[in-house]
């Protein structure tokens, strides 16, 4: 198939990857689904089934061959095309030689560039998503970097942009009590929902470590559990008491106790929280989960 267009990456923030909706149905092979960290942000861009997920420091690329329509969204970044400031999210028609610059804005860790077509990388096990832990999919199973060139092929479908829920709200994160909630003491469960936690610097597509400044889990017992399936949004307490929220490239199974699991929509809002941000948790019942 002839490429519609080609882009060249001029600057890529760390952990910039190619994603699509995800590689579902492979947990039994030991492979998490991956896919966009913030599905709502992904949908707010619209566009073809595959795209680029960039991180806080943004992305710069030029169109080597065109024309091409690009769709951007997710978080609140600043967009410039050939130096001219545009809004966010946006859909922009480009011609060969145009340069797109995306720089950090007010909020957000993850943003998306999608195209009126598909990125020409192979489907691996049914998906173009990059799995950073397994080194699968995307461009050679790796993160993107300056100098990479991507061909864009004609695609079957181009999704319309969806309105994005407000990810800047400071509402507590809704969760269901986790697989091992009953292994925690009453005080730990109570403090988990009454105390404030902070997003740490240690985060990636696998998981986000929280700072437990109030020492909610400082006395947590290291329990030896039989490992079981992990799902995105699981709040796992490591042996040293560090809470970690498991994200899209999670390990398929885990043996640390999980006190909670975020509701599916909340994972998207959580993904956009920057290091240092404060957060609280609120339990809901499955009946009221309304996902």
């Amino acid at each position: 198939m002839t490429a519609l267009a080609r882009i060249r990456i001029l600057r890529a923030a760390p952990l910039t990857t190619i994603q699509d909706a995800g590689r579902f149905g492979r947990l039994g092979s030991g492979i998490a689904a991956s896919g966009p960290m913030d599905v709502f942000g992904w949908q707010s861009a619209g566009g073809g089934a595959s795209g680029i997920e960039f991180t806080r420091a943004g992305l710069e690329f030029e169109l080597m061959r065109g024309p091409l329509t690009v769709h951007v969204g997710g978080g609140r970044f600043h967009l410039r095309v050939n130096g001219d400031r545009l809004g966010w999210p946006a859909r922009v028609g480009l011609v060969a030689g145009d340069r797109v610059g995306i720089t950090p804005g007010r909020v957000g860790l993850y943003g998306y560039v999608r195209f009126s077509g598909e990125i020409d990388v192979p489907h691996v096990l049914g998906s173009r998503s990059t799995n950073t832990i397994a080194g699968l999919g995307g461009l050679e199973g790796r993160t993107l970097r300056a100098g990479d060139q991507l061909d864009i092929l004609a695609g079957d479908t181009v999704a319309a942009p969806q309105p994005q829920p407000d990810s800047a709200t400071d509402a507590p994160f809704r969760f269901l009590w986790g697989l091992h909630a009953d292994l925690f003491g009453e005080a730990e469960r109570r403090d988990f929902v009454s105390k404030t936690f902070h997003v740490s610097q240690r985060l990636d597509r696998m998981g986000v470590r929280l700072e437990d400044r109030e020492g909610v889990f400082s006395a947590a017992q290291h329990l030896s559990l039989v490992s079981e399936s992990v799902v995105p949004g699981d709040v796992q307490i490591l042996g040293d008491g560090t809470p970690i929220i498991l994200m899209r490239d999670h390990q398929p199974t885990g043996g640390y106790p999980r006190i909670a699991t975020l509701l599916t929509p909340e994972i998207n809002r959580f993904a956009q929280m920057r290091p240092g941000a404060a957060l609280r948790f609120v339990p809901v019942s499955l009946k009221n989960a309304s996902t």
């Binding site: 269901l176 697989l179 079981e228 399936s229 799902v231 949004g233 699981d234 699991t261 975020l262 509701l263 599916t264 499955l286 989960a289 996902t291």
Partner: peptide, 9 residues
């Protein structure tokens, strides 16, 4: 038991 809002163990 539930494992999140889309899973059951």
């Amino acid at each position: 038991v539930p494992l999140g809002d889309r899973g059951l163990l």
